[in-house]
Design a protein around this nucleic acid. Structure first.
Lengths: 237, 237
DNA sequence: GCGGCTGGGTGGCTGAGCCACTCTACCTCT
DNA sequence: AGAGGTAGAGTGGCTCAGCCACCCAGCCGC
């Protein structure tokens, strides 16, 4: 079953319009956005709707709103924080995919190392059970979901909430990716690729875990990149 | 000159109230928040104000709002992404400070390694100039700002925007930390501690860079933790 | 010159209200 | 008894009209 469809709200639409304008440079960093009343008139919505949208953009770190002054575009490329990552990960066409995959491989590797050093017996049991769930998944979609759970579990084993958040950002962002992956990977293949990583962590071997994670993550990065950028036919049956 | 004071907006106040309630478990994950009209009546504000607050919380990933249903609290500890990091970093008292410092040291180390491998001559020049600026800073506050610029520059050298965002999250979050640090560190000390890291990157030695960064970042973590948790008197003159 | 004042432009927030969506309980027809 | 439809209550989405608080530039009087 594909994801349920949803009608985007006006705020959603307006947000992506303004965001695109900001990213494209229509409103360069440091400049003021047009006043709310003007934006409202221009886009044919109320000030309240515009306001809601601006609240979102502010929370995202793209603008900075000040009472009596206006909304100023921030230099998010230089000073933007990780609150932009989830959005970035979702922006498949942003040209930053290689960056994301590199970060994923680099951090995944060090997280795996720490997890291996700290895995307790019950963690090992959980991990193996999750791996089994990947193996027995009925289709690629389910396998991918189960695979995500494995990655979440590894991050959780470190006991560091920051690592968990970081892992989630990448995993959550894969929603749009999932559709592309459905046909490309089999549950069996996923499980086989994942197995050595789980084994290293279960065995408590930090170096091996780090190495395996690096191999695994850089290995899957290539096909994914191809899929996402459309360099190939979209995957084999 | 300290930062200018600013009167918090109603949205700010309401946001921190609701956020605290969510974190404290008043509204456990999976439950629905009270309806907007009810919240508005309860807190003595308009629905529009409540709405704006909820938009923020949704952007933060703490709740999920659906038309005709309500706002459901997400299990952000398990599934929250890095959009929560900036807030987390700002929450000095959250008990997650050790996690943050570990992540900072771990990632800082690998970022330093990559930067060293990729530093071009002009990058090296920029870096040394920035280090000089730390040395010649008139006070601890200015030194700290300049130090941040060094870290940003190192992240930028990797050429990976994700690393830049990540570094910024930690650096931006230090705003509340800065005040505590003012008295504790001298420009000279900062510059001396930073120098070996810059040298390793400038020399293009990835392993040395990674090691130095690890030493440097774990070294500063201890005093900072003490300062922030108030285990000591607040620093020496 | 320099301090205070004033007015125009901006965001903050209100109050009332209609519309769209979701879900449940009931009702009807088979 | 079960399947299908439907009405209504409860919820968020969005509008309209308007006042207030704030910032700032430019004027005025000292």
């Amino acid at each position: 079953m594909p994801d349920p469809i949803e009608r985007p709200s006006l705020i959603d639409v307006l947000e992506s319009r303004l965001r695109a304008d900001i990213v494209a440079g229509t409103y360069p960093p440091g400049t003021l956005l047009p006043p709310e009343r003007e934006l409202a008139a221009g886009y044919g919505v109320t000030r309240a709707t515009v306001k809601n949208t601006l609240v979102r953009l502010e929370q995202l770190g793209l603008i900075e709103t000040r009472h009596g002054v206006g909304s100023r575009v921030r230099d998010f490329q230089a000073y933007g924080g990780s609150e932009l990552l989830p959005w970035l990960v979702g922006q498949s066409g942003s040209g930053l995919l290689p960056d994301i995959f590199e970060a994923r491989a680099t951090f995944g590797s060090v997280i795996a190392r720490i997890a291996a050093a700290r895995a307790k017996p019950e963690d090992a049991r959980d991990l193996e059970e999750l791996l089994e769930r990947v193996r027995s998944a009925p289709d690629a979609r389910a396998a991918h979901d189960a695979e995500n759970e494995v990655h979440r579990a590894i991050a959780r084993i470190t006991g560091n909430q920051v690592f968990v958040f970081l892992a989630n950002s990448v995993l959550n962002g894969y929603q749009p990716v999932r559709r592309a992956l459905d046909a490309a990977f089999s549950p069996d293949g996923t499980a086989q690729a994942l197995a050595p990583l789980v084994a290293a962590i279960v065995a408590g071997e930090p170096d091996a875990a780090a190495d395996t994670a690096l191999v695994y993550l850089t290995g899957t990065a290539g096909p994914m990149l191809d899929l996402l950028t459309g360099t190939d036919d979209g995957g084999v049956a």
